[in-house]
């Protein structure tokens, strides 16, 4: 038989617990008109609301996230979540290439630190395109594109030189989420890959660039494609330049391509002022340089100014 003292103890414990819960509730209670509590509380609230509104027998996890919720907290949370879903994590790339203008594309190829200091020295200009080079992307990953985007002036045009050879959609998506405005694909890749690449670029709002390195006739390749890319890059590789001097950049193809298609043409592989002049004289829209901008130096500013002067 329970003694009255024990019964009293039990009652006191229950009473203590009740007071404790009451105090906790008072602390965490939301005031009228005040903003919703901490994110954790919002989350808990949302989960409990979802569980309450879920039809009986159906598991909560199958309930779609967009269920209309009634309580003010849940409503606030749902509108917030919808907003964040619409908002991408990086600012939407707005810069677009104009066909009447000529651009200087600076490829950043050494290290991220070098890239940072070079970008900080460059004059902010809408005629400079920044390129996250292939070595940079392969060593630092998508972080390289993000860094170039973060360091660049607002509204800068950033190209990811991913050199896609297969699995085009995934790489385009990667570049798009990292904040690039354009991405390159290899012209020597299969036609199916390039087609997919161009379609994916359109879908993600990026400029598609097809790199014609080691392609014998870019003209023939362009005819095989379902849709035209935005930019064609005529390219002589670095190793080719160093080890077989007789190989020339095919300047004559610039006018061939621009005459038959409404495409922007970029020329890569020339690094001296003279070669830049040649490319511009032959009607190239974009001139890609990298060697003079491989590491940051005092001359970076003057060099950029010189190159920009050549590209009218």
């Amino acid at each position: 038989m329970a003694s009255p003292i024990k019964v009293f103890e039990v009652f006191t414990t229950i009473f203590n617990f009740a007071i404790f819960f009451f105090i906790v509730r008072m602390i965490f209670r939301k005031k009228k008109g005040a903003p919703a509590g901490s994110p954790l509380l919002q989350f808990l609230e949302k989960i409990s609301q979802q569980a309450r509104h879920a039809p009986k027998g159906a598991p909560t996890s199958t309930q779609p996230a967009a269920t209309p919720l009634k309580t003010p907290i849940a409503l606030a949370f749902s509108s917030l979540s919808q907003k964040t879903a619409q908002m991408p994590l990086v600012p939407v790339p707005t810069a677009k290439l104009q066909k009447s203008k000529q651009y200087l594309q600076i490829a950043l190829n050494s290290t991220l630190d070098d890239a940072r200091s070079i970008i900080s020295r460059l004059p902010p200009s809408d005629r400079i395109i920044l390129e996250a080079g292939t070595p940079l992307i392969k060593i630092y990953g998508a972080e390289a594109i993000r860094t170039v985007r973060a360091m660049a002036w607002p509204g800068a045009y950033v190209v990811a030189d991913a050199k896609t050879a297969d699995l085009a959609e995934r790489e385009v998506e990667m570049a798009a989420t990292a904040g690039a405005n354009g991405i390159t694909c290899l012209g020597v890749a299969r036609v199916e890959t390039i087609d997919r690449f161009i379609a994916a670029c359109k879908q993600h709002g990026l400029d598609s660039m097809v790199d014609m390195m080691n392609v014998e006739s870019p003209h023939m390749l362009l005819r095989q494609l379902r849709a035209l890319p935005d930019v064609v890059v005529l390219h002589r590789g670095v190793d080719e330049t160093e080890f077989s001097k007789e190989k020339q950049i095919p300047y004559y193809q610039i006018k061939q391509i621009r005459g038959s298609y409404n495409i922007t043409v970029a020329v890569a592989g020339g690094d001296t002022i003279r070669e830049v002049q040649r490319a511009v004289f032959n009607d190239a829209n974009i001139v890609v340089v990298w060697k003079d901008f491989y590491s940051s130096s005092v001359d970076t500013v003057t060099l950029a100014a010189q190159f920009l002067k050549e590209i009218k």
């Binding site: 992307i137 392969k138 060593i139 630092y140 990953g141 998508a142 972080e143 390289a144 991913a162 050879a165 297969d166 699995l167 995934r170 790489e171 990667m174």
Partner: peptide, 8 residues
């Protein structure tokens, strides 16, 4: 390749 290009 996609993995390398994302994570380096």
């Amino acid at each position: 390749t996609p993995f390398v290009k994302v994570y380096g």
